[in-house]
Design a protein around this nucleic acid. Structure first.
Length: 480
RNA sequence: GGGAUCGUCGUCUAGCUUGGUAUGAUACUAGUCUGGGGGACUAGUGGUCGCAGGUUCAAAUCCUGCCGGUCCCA
């Protein structure tokens, strides 16, 4: 036994979990850290994160949100200020109990999230309606000790994310902000990562601890499980009261402010791997691919080598001038076949091959990663490549949409629901709004309410569990 | 919380029953040939055998404790 295979050794279909881990490691996105539950990002993985970060930053900025920085340690006394919030996070908090040899008096939490810390500061900064709205985003990491099995990007004890915290004078304005952010999340994930999402509200049971309500975007993964891709919370005055985030309004009366918080994490990268990857490895959407095009030159004598590398260099320069990220793989020690497989495993969206035969015909061969299609392109048609990348991006989203559609079913019969749930998928099932039904369904099927889509308020149906009148048609699924 | 099982070059592993200089593959380095889908040959580098004790002339191997991983059950 024990021959280490170079490529992915299991199929996505047969052993999804093992497949996923192999792709992450072999595409060199991340590696395991020496501490259980923690991972290390390698340059290709971090580059994808940076790309998402820059897109979000642009959109946040257009929405009047600026970036700040918060420290990682939060005193227990602060974290415990909002009771429900604390109770929700407490089981998975890492605590710092010593500084050097000395025990610290008030234990320090490694932030599981920063609401309590941010709002302590906000209460100092906000005095008047003129100070509002206050909109700050923080790029950092959060730490939550994971007891269950961990998985790179999907469930780790420390994760990269952004957390935004805004403060408003009115309830309406805060609620609007919640939706604006959710829309930014949705269009970024769909346009950049080519993953379709469904937006809506979380049920009371599943909402963020401390929020009035939570809006969410959910996606369906190829194994039929749901993945929460990002959340945007309306906090109401639940935090502004204990933390005294108050302002004097135009009426000269002090009011508690209205707040929101929202975040997405590197889970998005995990989703991208799962949705687009195949048995050869990673498949990257062009927009976030660290390398969008790789040129593999093919030659067997010095004369060919020179003219081919010259041509490759020329193409590279041409495309680089259009901001395309392109790499020439001139490694001598590897055969072309090895390189093809290598770059496919790493998910590079487009490969260009140039060999002696192509030189003679004044053509190059291009191979698309996402559908393995190979075509020829004349030397005079290089400028088309820009469009080809755009086309790949939109086709990948289309393909993912189709996949999601196939995995979504309307269902009204509980018996049928129970049978089908093990196959996985999104189930549109009417619900009476009663938490007991929700809990029973979770208990009996393992599925919970992932999201109540915004357009699925519906009182014409009957609850799939208790048969009482429905209030909505949520999406039920088993989740990550 | 209960149970099972495993820790040996970067990685995967043989050796353990019956104690005696740690095996092979892969990866890595160098060279030659090769080159349109995971190439071939030759040579070389690399391991305090998870940690700490104990038994013994001698421990990867036997014993004890600890640490860590994985899986199953609650």
């Amino acid at each position: 036994m024990g021959k280490e295979s170079v490529g992915i050794s299991v199929s996505k279909k047969e052993d999804f979990s093992e497949w996923y881990t192999q792709v992450v490691l072999k595409a060199k996105l991340a590696d395991y850290a020496p501490v259980k539950g923690l991972i290390v990002l390698r340059p290709d993985g971090y580059s994808i994160w940076e790309s998402l970060k820059s897109t979000f930053d642009k959109k946040f900025s257009q929405n009047g949100i600026r970036n700040g920085f918060l420290p990682v340690l939060i005193p227990e006394s602060l974290l415990g200020k909002e009771q429900k919030h604390f109770a929700g996070f407490n089981p998975e908090v890492f605590w710092v109990t010593h500084s050097g040899e000395n025990e610290v008096g008030d234990r320090l939490a490694l932030r599981p999230t920063s609401e309590t810390l941010a709002y302590t500061l906000y209460s100092k900064w906000i005095k008047s309606w003129r100070d509002l709205p206050l909109k700050i985003n923080f790029w950092n990491t959060a730490l939550r000790a994971e007891i269950k099995a961990t998985k790179p990007f999907l469930r780790t004890s420390e994760f990269l994310w952004q957390e935004g915290h805004t403060v408003h004078t009115t309830e309406e304005e805060a609620k609007e902000e919640v939706l604006k952010i959710l829309e930014i999340y949705k269009n970024t994930v769909e346009e950049e990562l080519a993953i379709p999402v469904i937006t809506g509200k979380k049920s009371e049971k599943e909402k963020f601890v401390g929020a009035v309500y939570t809006t969410t975007m959910e996606s369906i993964m190829p194994d039929g499980k749901a993945l929460q891709m990002g959340t945007s919370h309306f906090l109401g005055q639940n935090f502004s009261k204990p933390f005294e985030v108050k302002f004097a309004d135009k009426d000269n009366i002090e009011h508690f402010a209205w707040q929101t918080s929202w975040g997405v994490s590197w889970r998005l990268i995990g989703a991208m791997i799962m949705v687009h990857g195949d048995d050869q490895g990673l498949v990257l959407p062009p927009k976030v691919a660290p390398t969008q095009i790789v040129i593999v030159p093919i030659y067997n004598n010095d004369e060919d080598k020179k003219r081919i590398l010259d041509k490759a260099g020329e193409i590279k320069q041409d495309l680089e001038s259009k901001q395309i990220r392109i790499h020439i793989d001139d490694r001598k020690e590897m055969s072309p076949g090895f390189k093809f497989n290598d770059w496919e495993m790493k998910g590079v969206p487009l490969r260009i091959e140039i060999g002696p035969k192509d030189m003679d015909k004044q053509k190059i061969l291009i191979a698309k990663r996402y559908n393995k299609e190979k075509t020829n392109l004349g030397f005079d048609e290089i400028s088309k490549i820009e469009e080809i990348l755009e086309e790949i991006q939109s086709k990948m989203l289309e393909k993912a949409r189709e996949q999601a559609r196939l995995n979504t079913v309307d269902i009204t019969d509980y018996k049928e629901f129970k049978e089908k749930i093990s196959i996985g998928g999104f189930f549109n099932a009417p619900w009476c709004g009663n938490q007991e039904c929700e809990e029973k369904i979770k208990e009996e099927t393992g599925a919970d309410i992932r999201v109540i889509p915004f357009d699925k308020e519906d009182n014409t149906k009957n609850c799939i569990y208790c048969n009482e009148k429905s209030i909505s048609i949520p999406i039920f699924a088993r989740g990550y």
